[in-house]
Computed example of a mutant assay.
Amino acid sequence: MPTLAIVGAGPGLGLSIARVFGAQGYSVALIARSRSTLDSLVAGLPGVDAAGYPADIMDRPSLVDAFKEIAANHDPVEVLEFSPAPRGPEPGLVLAGPLDVSVANVQPHFDFYVHGAITATGQVLPGMLERGTGTLLYTTGPHAVTPAPAMGNVGMACAALRNWVLNLHDALADKGVYAAHVPLATDAEPDAIAPHYWRIHTAGEGGEHLLSPEALRSTREL
């Protein structure tokens, strides 16, 4: 049974993506900081082979350990979906406009988004390359593509992640592994967005998929 691993799983989009892939026969491994959150997510996936693995993305050894547990309890990860997002005030993760960006307030965002993505990817990519198959999906907000002054420091980190993913997409093009950046630019319900992730995975084309209201409408019209 192929495995979907979601880093930054939550009760919104993460749970909806888990349901979509679970309905397609995937085992689902959910990674989040809180055991209570994970237990609630697993309970919301009846009929799906799902399990939760606590890890703090800012604590990279704990993230590595979570993937070791996943490897021990599931078949190899076929799809990695990386979409951590602060769900309220987080120590160190503050917003700063361009004039207020500093090393102190931008570094935590690089730790959260860029270093977190690199760490998670490093746990599954070698196996994908060995098998010659796999999908890596990285979700950010639209500020990774279009600058938003209010998110000056966050945008820098997400843009750096986007740059790496687009390069990763090109580097993996002839190796059977697919990588793509998914910037979310819509407040649509998670259940309306999640099926698009399945389509991105199965099509395996393009290094970036902007999910906007227009994109979702055009998908429904297909």
Results as ranks from 00 to 15, higher is better:
residue 138 Y to W: 05
residue 115 H to S: 03
residue 130 E to A: 13
residue 179 A to Y: 00
residue 208 E to M: 15
residue 185 A to E: 15
residue 212 S to N: 06
residue 52 G to V: 14
residue 134 G to Y: 05
residue 219 T to M: 13
residue 55 A to N: 13
residue 6 I to H: 09
residue 147 P to E: 03
residue 68 K to P: 00
residue 189 E to V: 10
residue 4 L to S: 12
residue 12 G to H: 10
residue 47 G to H: 04
residue 204 G to L: 07
residue 17 I to D: 11
residue 26 Y to I: 08
residue 65 D to Q: 15
residue 177 V to K: 09
residue 164 W to C: 05
residue 120 A to Q: 12
residue 10 G to K: 10
residue 93 L to V: 11
residue 98 P to R: 07
residue 16 S to R: 12
residue 144 A to V: 05
residue 112 F to N: 00
residue 149 P to Q: 08
residue 222 L to N: 11
residue 155 G to P: 00
residue 161 L to K: 13
residue 111 D to E: 11
residue 45 L to C: 03
residue 138 Y to V: 01
residue 198 W to G: 00
residue 42 V to H: 10
residue 202 T to P: 03
residue 146 T to E: 15
residue 58 M to N: 10
residue 33 R to K: 14
residue 127 G to C: 05
residue 129 L to Y: 11
residue 3 T to H: 06
residue 54 P to W: 12
residue 221 E to P: 02
residue 78 E to Q: 12
residue 134 G to T: 05
residue 167 N to K: 10
residue 134 G to D: 03
residue 140 T to H: 01
residue 73 N to I: 01
residue 166 L to S: 03
residue 143 H to E: 09
residue 213 P to Y: 10
residue 213 P to D: 15
residue 50 A to I: 03
residue 47 G to A: 08
residue 19 R to W: 03
residue 94 V to P: 01
residue 116 G to S: 10
residue 18 A to H: 08
residue 66 A to V: 03
residue 196 H to M: 04
residue 85 A to C: 08
residue 203 A to N: 15
residue 32 A to N: 12
residue 45 L to E: 14
residue 19 R to D: 03
residue 188 A to D: 12
residue 13 L to H: 13
residue 178 Y to V: 05
residue 44 G to T: 10
residue 182 V to S: 03
residue 199 R to N: 06
residue 37 T to G: 07
residue 146 T to S: 13
residue 150 A to E: 14
residue 26 Y to G: 09
residue 2 P to Q: 07
residue 85 A to W: 12
residue 46 P to K: 05
residue 67 F to G: 04
residue 22 G to L: 00
residue 10 G to H: 12
residue 169 H to F: 01
residue 170 D to K: 10
residue 150 A to L: 13
residue 88 G to M: 02
residue 178 Y to Q: 14
residue 129 L to S: 07
residue 16 S to K: 04
residue 141 G to P: 11
residue 204 G to H: 13
residue 199 R to S: 08
residue 144 A to S: 15
residue 89 P to D: 06
residue 86 P to M: 08
